[in-house]
Amino acid sequence: MILFGIILGVIGLFASFVYGRKNSWRAVGTIVFGLLLIGSVTAIVGNDTHHWAMHRSTTRQQTVIKASKQTRHGPLLLAVKLDHAGHDKAYVYKTSGNQTKHTNPETTRVRVCQNGKANSAAIMTTKRHEWQYSRLGKIMFAGLRNNHELIYNNVGYSVPSTWHVLTIQHR
């Protein structure tokens, strides 16, 4: 709707200002289409910078994971440290299909806890926080393709007591 508003605003503003014959109609057309154009452009900026017509939403997903590496001391959950301070770590794990994956340290906050049981499965719980359009927003900003914009992920690893968390420095 906003994109349509911009296109209609531009064409209407041009047509009424240039081709308008009677001064009164020309003025009315210019004001109406000018406001439509400015309003639509403002709405796009507001949506982009202040997430107008959007709200925060959280989705939760649980996955059974495997250790990044098996050692003689037990299964390992590897944390690759990207900085000296240790704020930014990427956690490496394997999916049930044995695919190696890692968390994105830029967008993910991670918490690891050992569940105290030796034989239970290792669970990764991902809480995805994102911006989602309200019902009105979906109509207003249709076509902008910015729904479900990620804010951050909360990842919690619940691993058996036999697992070890090993932090290594990324080179």
Binding site: L3, I6, I7, V41, I44, D48, T49, G143, L144, R145, N146, E149
Partner: peptide
């Protein structure tokens, strides 16, 4: 911003 809609950029 770092996440401005590309469609919006094309239209603007």
């Amino acid at each position: 911003t770092t996440h401005t809609s590309i469609v919006a950029i094309i239209v603007l």
